[in-house]
Design a binder for these strands. Structure first.
Length: 194
DNA sequence: CCGCCGATCTTT
DNA sequence: AAGATCGGCGGG
C-alpha cells in the first residue's frame, strides 16, 4: 500500500491535536516500518510534566525549534525516547511515540533489540520503539518532514484505527490528570495500563 | 498476568 | 534526588 508523507504543516499544530491524528500512521526509517498505536502530548510552557516547562535548556532546544523534527532524550541512565516536535517554531510542544506495531524490517529490529523475544517486545514502549529503530542521541533534532531520503518519516496509508482510547499520561508525577494520552484499543503494542 | 525492585547516569 | 523506562524475578 502506498504511503503519503506527513508534511511540516501537519506537525505545526497543537500537540494535543496532532497526537490522536498520529494513531494509525506509519513510522518509516530505511527498511524499518511500524504503525503508531500509542502517543502522548506534551505542551511545553503550560505543562508541568513537559521537559520544556521551565524554559529552554541545552536538553530541550529542539522542542523550541520548528515542528517536524525528532526530540530524542536520554532517561533513567540507559534509555532513549523519541518525540515529534509539534506546534509553531519558537513554541515548545511534542508528541511522545509510546507504542507501535512492527510492519517491516522485523529482523533488523530484533538485531537492534537483542532482549526482544516476540514481536510485541519490539515497539511496545517509548524506549523499546526508539531502540528497535536504532535511534539515540545522534537522532536528536533530525528533520522528519523535509523529504530527506535516509531520515525517518511518517506516512499515511489511509488506515484509520477502529477504536481510540483517551486517558491520563503514563509514568509521570505532575499533571497526571490531564487526558493527553491516546492509544488504539486492543492492540498488543500498547505499553501502559489499558 | 501482576507487582516489586535494581540498573545507571543526566538533569535539577 | 528524581526521572516522559525496562527487564528479571517471585507469587497468584
Amino acid at each position: 500500500m502506498s504511503s503519503e508523507r506527513l508534511d511540516r504543516e501537519f506537525f505545526a499544530r497543537d500537540p494535543r491535536e496532532v497526537a490522536p491524528d498520529l494513531l494509525g500512521k506509519v513510522i518509516h526509517h530505511r527498511d524499518l516500518a511500524a504503525r503508531i498505536v500509542e502517543v502522548e502530548a506534551y505542551v511545553g510552557g503550560e505543562d508541568p510534566a513537559s521537559h520544556a516547562y521551565k524554559g529552554e535548556t541545552p536538553r530541550t532546544t529542539v522542542m523550541f525549534g520548528p515542528p517536524g523534527h525528532l526530540y530524542v532524550y536520554f532517561t533513567y541512565g540507559m534509555h532513549w525516547c523519541a518525540n515529534v516536535v509539534c506546534g509553531e517554531d519558537g513554541v515548545a510542544g511534542a508528541v511522545l511515540l509510546r507504542g507501535a506495531e512492527p510492519l517491516s524490517g522485523l529482523s533488523h529490529m530484533y538485531r537492534n533489540r537483542i532482549v526482544a523475544k516476540r514481536d510485541s517486545d519490539l515497539c511496545s514502549g517509548p524506549a523499546k520503539l526508539a531502540q528497535s529503530f536504532g535511534w539515540d542521541g545522534s537522532t536528536n533534532g533530525v528533520d522528519i518532514a523535509g523529504g530527506i531520503d535516509d531520515a525517518p518519516w511518517i506516512g499515511d496509508d489511509g488506515t484509520a484505527p477502529e477504536a481510540v482510547v483517551n486517558t491520563g499520561r503514563v509514568g509521570i508525577t505532575r499533571a497526571v490528570e490531564e487526558p493527553w494520552r491516546w492509544y488504539v484499543a486492543d492492540n498488543p503494542n500498547v505499553s501502559g495500563p489499558r
